[in-house]
Amino acid sequence: MSENYTNRGEYRTYKMLRQLDKRFPEDKFHIFANLYIDSDDNRFPNRQVDHLVVCRKGIFMLETKYWTGAVYHNIKLADLLRMIGVGKDGSMDGLYLVKRLLPKEVMQQGTESFTMCIKNPDNIQVYAGDENPINQVILSGLSLNRLIQNKLNQLGIKPYIHEFVFYNYVSEDPDNKVIDLHNVLNQPYDDDYNKWGEGFSKPALFRSFYSEVHEKLPDWLGLTDDQVNAIARLIHETVVLD
């Protein structure tokens, strides 16, 4: 793969993955970057994946966001209203404030989840639907699974794809932060994959998490060297095409 990145966030992710590869060579990392995976969604005939790692600990798909400002990860309008006390004690003053301060894109979300990045009061960006980072990476994971699952079944391999949103902008400025209202980011290792959460807000937290995975993941949940090589070869043949 090429190391000539134009996206600083994706380059930092690649460097971190290479560091983990060097730290844990026995895990047999195969790192893929900037993949385009065929999709059966007519709106999006292919889905872009920032980084995909195949190793003895599983398959990890990372959607990198190098965002400055206050990032509210995967929230709903009701979460914001609760934060400012809308409806509490019958008061609707907060709702008036929200309507004045937030863009109409937020107010139109209703019960749908979205991710919001506030760079300043005049620059508030809303990512909903397929543009919501967690939806992006989950849909990419589903597309990859559909593309390679039949072949893997023939080989007797049943890997689990772990999809994560990776916010990797690091700053001491308190205005640059990731707000995780539902406590779904930066989760510790657990034998239950469903408890691994939706991603990480800092590179150090992902490195720490992977160190736990390396130390604690039972062998029966991992992959053998032959299985890792088979999956990597299949991705080359069906996605990379080199």
Rank of each mutant, 00 (worst) to 15 (best):
Y96F: 14
L185T: 04
I157D: 04
V86H: 03
N123P: 01
V228G: 00
V213Q: 06
K216C: 03
D130F: 13
P45T: 14
G90H: 07
D226S: 14
F29K: 08
P45A: 12
A230I: 01
K158E: 01
S143F: 02
R12G: 03
D226V: 04
F29E: 09
M116G: 05
I37Y: 02
N123D: 15
K104D: 14
L101C: 10
A128Y: 05
F166Q: 00
E172N: 13
G69S: 01
I148Q: 03
Y66G: 09
N46Y: 06
N168Q: 07
L223I: 09
V213Y: 08
V170K: 02
Q125G: 01
L221E: 11
I84V: 14
I179R: 10
H236S: 09
Q149T: 07
F166Y: 14
V184T: 11
E105A: 15
G110P: 01
H162G: 03
Y72E: 11
I235K: 00
R207W: 01
V53Y: 05
V137F: 05
N183G: 07
V178D: 03
E198T: 14
G90V: 03
D190S: 15
I75A: 10
F164G: 00
G129N: 12
K158D: 08
P45S: 06
D190H: 13
L77I: 08
R18M: 07
E215R: 15
M1T: 10
K28H: 10
V98D: 05
G199Y: 03
E26R: 02
V126F: 08
E237F: 03
T115K: 10
E212F: 02
V106L: 07
T115L: 01
V184M: 05
F44Q: 12
A232C: 04
T111K: 13
P25N: 08
Q154P: 04
N4H: 10
N132M: 07
L81S: 11
L142H: 08
F32V: 05
E26V: 00
W67V: 07
G94H: 06
P218W: 13
N4M: 06
N74W: 07
D40P: 07
A78L: 11
G58W: 00
H73C: 08
A128F: 12
L152Y: 04
G129E: 11
Y169Q: 12
G199D: 01
K15Y: 08
F60M: 10
N168Y: 00
N74H: 15
V126E: 06
E237H: 02
G199K: 02
E112F: 03
D190Q: 08
D192M: 06
E105C: 03
D21K: 11
P188R: 04
L181T: 02
L185N: 10
G69T: 09
L139H: 07
S91T: 09
R100H: 04
Y127Q: 11
G222S: 02
Y72P: 05
D93H: 14
L17A: 09
Y11F: 07
L101P: 03
N34G: 09
I59C: 07
A232L: 12
Q19S: 04
P203I: 05
T64G: 08
Y96E: 12
P25F: 01
L77W: 13
V126H: 05
V126L: 03
D192C: 01
E63V: 04
Y193D: 10
Q136D: 07
H73F: 11
V98G: 02
R100Y: 06
G156V: 09
Y189H: 02
E3G: 09
M107F: 13
T13R: 04
D225C: 07
G222D: 06
P174M: 08
H236C: 09
E237Q: 15
D175C: 04
